[in-house]
């Protein structure tokens, strides 16, 4: 999912500390925030926008396209279903530590209604020069700059670093898609890759993966069919097996989810696999004959 600057954005959980802080940042950057949700504070104005009792009410009043959720783990299922029922085109779920059964429930409902979901456990989306959703430092010019490279990342901090490296090397981003660090997520690496492949504003793609699961292997199968160049960095090569490395999804069980498996699948698909994220600029320059 690439969110454009004209999209109307709802913030569920807008009145909380983080919701307030990041709504202000999003507004400063140009994100068209049209409203917020807090059932207990419906009727007030917060961050200059109306607060509704539900996403359904927000849709009935002024409408919205995409909702971003600043909601604690056990409240996400209800809030997300509210937005899906309301007819949201997209959801960005930032929350970490949501029970996986709740995530699957939300994703099943979203699939039925045609709602695109990004996350959970993501730092969000950035479309440089247009808008951002979540808690990314989109407003830092040394990190995000409008350009033609699409970035997909399971990690917010590492994704930020790669974007910084791209700008230092003279590139900019068409879109940053933070897909999230959970084992089950709404938009997989492959799905994000397909989106960027179809995007006319994207000339090349950087995948930032990590150990655990098989998303990179599945993305590799699609990358093999692409004409746009793809580079990838996979975090976790030096991590021990059997331990969860911070992200719920980042765990090697037996030989499943290993660095070696991902490296091999991506290399075989013609993807440039980087030893360090610092090499991303050089790799893109080579790929695009800058």
């Amino acid at each position: 999912m690439i969110v454009r600057g004209d999209a109307g954005v709802l913030v569920q959980g807008i009145t909380g500390k983080q919701g307030t802080f990041w709504t202000e940042r999003m507004q400063e950057y140009g994100t068209r925030v049209v409203g917020g949700v807090n059932p207990k504070k419906a009727g007030i104005t917060h961050c200059t926008v109306p607060v509704y009792a539900s996403a359904g009410e927000a849709m009935a009043d002024g409408g919205f396209d995409v909702s971003v959720l600043f909601i604690p783990p056990l409240g996400v299922r209800e809030a997300a279903l509210d937005a899906i029922e309301a007819g949201a085109k997209g959801l960005v779920i930032l929350t970490e530590h949501i029970p996986v059964h709740d995530v699957m429930y939300v994703l099943a409902a979203a699939r039925e209604r045609g709602t695109r979901v990004v996350g959970p456990n993501t730092a969000g989306l950035v479309t440089p020069g247009e808008c951002f959703l979540g808690f990314m430092p989109a407003f830092t010019g040394s990190i995000f700059h409008a350009g033609r490279i699409g970035v997909i990342s399971r990690s917010g901090s590492l994704g930020t670093l790669v974007c910084l490296n791209l700008v230092q090397a003279g590139f900019g981003q068409s879109a940053f898609i933070g897909i999230g660090g959970d084992p089950i997520i709404g938009t997989t690496t492959r799905e994000a890759l397909e989106t960027l492949d179809r995007d006319p504003g994207t000339d090349a793609v950087v995948i930032i993966g990590e150990i655990g699961g098989s998303m990179e292997e599945e993305a590799a199968a699609y990358a093999a069919t692409m004409t746009k160049p793809v580079a990838a960095f996979i975090a976790g090569g030096a991590s021990p097996a059997g331990r969860r490395m911070g992200h719920a999804g980042a765990i090697v069980i037996g030989d499943k989810g290993s660095y070696a498996s991902k490296h091999a699948a991506l290399s075989e698909a013609g993807v440039t696999v980087l030893d360090t994220p610092s090499d991303v600029g050089k790799a893109m320059a080579r790929a695009l004959r800058h």
Binding site: S157, L161, I208, E210, G236, A238, S239, G246, T276
Partner: peptide, 10 residues
């Protein structure tokens, strides 16, 4: 961040 920490180790 988990990703950046793993990467630093890498």
């Amino acid at each position: 961040g988990a990703g950046l920490t793993m990467t630093t180790m890498d």
